Computed example of a mutant assay.
Amino acid sequence: MKKEYRVKKNKDFQEIFKKGKSFANRQFVVYSLKKPGQAHFRIGLSVSKRLGNAVKRNQIKRYIRQAFHELEDDLQQEYDYIIIARKPAATMDFFEIKGSLVHVLKLSKVLKVRKALSKSEQ
Rank of each mutant, 00 (worst) to 15 (best):
I83G: 08
Q122P: 09
L101V: 09
K87S: 13
V113N: 13
N53W: 01
S120Y: 14
F28R: 02
K21L: 11
K8Q: 06
G99T: 03
M1W: 01
N25E: 07
T91E: 14
V30E: 04
S22L: 07
F23G: 10
E70H: 13
H40K: 12
K8W: 08
K3D: 02
G52S: 00
S120D: 12
P88A: 05
V47K: 00
F17L: 01
R65N: 10
R62Y: 05
E121F: 05
E72F: 15
M92A: 11
G52V: 00
F17S: 00
Q59A: 14
L75W: 02
Y31D: 04
A89F: 07
D73S: 06
Q59I: 04
K61A: 07
L51T: 10
V30S: 05
N25W: 02
S118D: 10
G37R: 01
Q76F: 12
H69V: 14
G99K: 13
G37W: 02
K56V: 00
K56R: 11
I83M: 11
R65M: 12
L101M: 09
D74P: 07
K61Q: 05
Q66T: 15
K112A: 01
V102E: 09
K61I: 09
A39Q: 12
F23I: 06
L117Q: 07
F68L: 07
F95M: 09
E70I: 14
A39C: 11
N53T: 00
D93H: 01
K119Q: 10
R57V: 07
G37K: 05
F17K: 08
S118C: 11
D12E: 12
K56W: 02
I83H: 04
K35D: 03
A89W: 08
E96N: 13
G44T: 03
V30N: 03
Q122K: 11
R42A: 10
I16L: 00
N10K: 15
D80L: 11
A85R: 01
K112T: 04
I82Q: 13
F68E: 04
K112C: 01
V7I: 04
V7G: 00
V7A: 01
E96A: 12
Y5Q: 10
S48I: 02
S118G: 02
V29Q: 02
L105C: 14
I64R: 05
Q38S: 15
K56Y: 07
A85K: 00
